[in-house]
Design a protein around this nucleic acid. Structure first.
Length: 263
DNA sequence: ATGGTTGCGTAGCAA
C-alpha cells in the first residue's frame, strides 16, 4: 500500500469541477493539493469531493484570483495559512498528515510579463515571495515536509521547450532560477520530478492556452513541483505527470503531478 | 510572426 499525493493548478475549481472528479475517480490520490481555485472559502464546492470520500477539506481562498485547497481522505490537522506578501493574497496552506508529515501547498506568484522589478513590481514581489519562503524553509529543522504546488519557475534547460528562447521570459530567467535554488538549498529539498524523471528528459506540466495545438507545438514548461525534505526521499517510490488531463474537456493549462509514498 | 486563450464577473485584469 502506498499513500499518494497529487498537486494540480486547476485554474478555477468551479469551472473545472467535472474534470477534477474525473481525475479523482481515475487516479484516486489520497490527498489532492489544488492551486488557483479562484473562489472564496465559503463558496468552495465541497459536495463532489465529499461524495467521493474526500471529507477533509481545508481552503485558503479569495474572490477572483489565486486560492489554494488541500483535499484529503484522511484527517488533516495543524492547518496554517501563510501570507508571505502581507497583502491578503491566498497562496499557501500547510497541514499535518496522520503520519506526522507536513504538507505545504503553495501557489507562487506568476510575476507579470517583464522580468525587471523596477519596471514590473509583480516580478519583484515574486522574488520577495521566494525570499520569505526561504526564511520559512530554514526553520523546518527536523520536520519531515512535502512542499508542492505551482512554483511558476521552470529551473532546468529540459524544463522548457526552448532554453535559449525563454531566458528572458518570466518563469525561466536566471534570476528566478537562482532564487528558486536558494529556496531549495535552505532545506536541501529533493525535487521529486527530477529524482524520478532525470534531466535532460524533457518534462513539462504546463502548456499555454494560446497555442493553436498545444500537443503538436509542445511548447511546455515544468512550473509545478513536488519537493521533499531529505528524510522523506527514501519514502517516495514513484512520481508521474498526468498529461492526458491537458486534453480533457475545458482543461486547465496545467496538468496534475502525483507522487506515491511508502508511509 | 509581439499575436494568441481563459476565468472571473460583467470591464478589464491576471495568468
Amino acid at each position: 500500500m502506498t499513500f499518494s499525493i497529487a498537486s494540480w493548478n486547476i485554474n478555477s475549481v468551479r469551472a473545472r469541477i467535472g474534470i477534477v472528479e474525473k481525475f479523482l475517480r481515475e487516479e484516486a490520490p489520497d490527498v489532492l493539493c489544488l492551486q488557483e481555485t479562484k473562489v472564496e472559502c465559503g463558496l468552495f464546492p465541497k459536495a463532489m469531493f465529499e461524495q467521493l470520500g474526500y471529507t477533509h477539506i481545508v481552503t485558503n481562498g479569495q474572490r477572483m484570483h489565486h486560492g489554494v485547497a488541500t483535499i484529503s481522505r484522511v484527517p488533516l490537522t495543524e492547518v496554517r495559512k501563510y501570507d508571505w506578501q502581507a497583502n491578503g493574497e491566498a497562496r499557501h496552506i500547510g497541514v499535518t498528515l496522520p503520519s506526522g508529515v507536513r504538507l505545504d501547498n503553495v501557489y507562487i506568484p506568476a510575476g507579470g510579463d517583464i522580468p525587471d522589478r523596477n519596471l514590473n513590481p509583480k516580478f519583484g514581489q515574486k522574488l520577495d515571495f521566494f525570499g520569505r519562503m526561504t526564511e520559512w524553509s530554514a526553520t523546518l529543522v527536523d520536520t519531515p515536509t512535502i512542499l508542492t504546488g505551482d512554483f511558476n519557475v521552470a529551473p532546468l534547460e529540459s524544463d522548457v521547450w526552448n532554453h535559449k528562447a525563454l531566458l528572458d521570459v518570466v518563469s525561466h530567467t536566471p534570476v528566478e532560477v537562482e532564487t528558486l535554488a536558494r529556496l531549495q538549498s535552505a532545506s536541501n529539498w529533493v525535487d521529486l520530478g527530477r529524482h524520478f524523471i532525470e534531466a535532460p528528459t524533457p518534462l513539462f506540466t504546463w502548456w499555454s492556452y494560446r497555442a493553436k495545438d498545444w500537443e503538436a507545438s509542445n511548447r511546455g514548461r515544468r512550473l509545478d513541483h513536488m519537493w521533499v525534505t531529505p528524510d522523506l526521499m527514501a519514502k517516495a517510490v514513484a512520481h508521474r505527470t498526468v498529461q492526458p488531463a491537458r486534453s480533457w474537456e475545458r482543461p486547465s493549462d496545467h496538468i496534475p503531478i502525483v507522487t506515491e509514498f511508502a508511509f
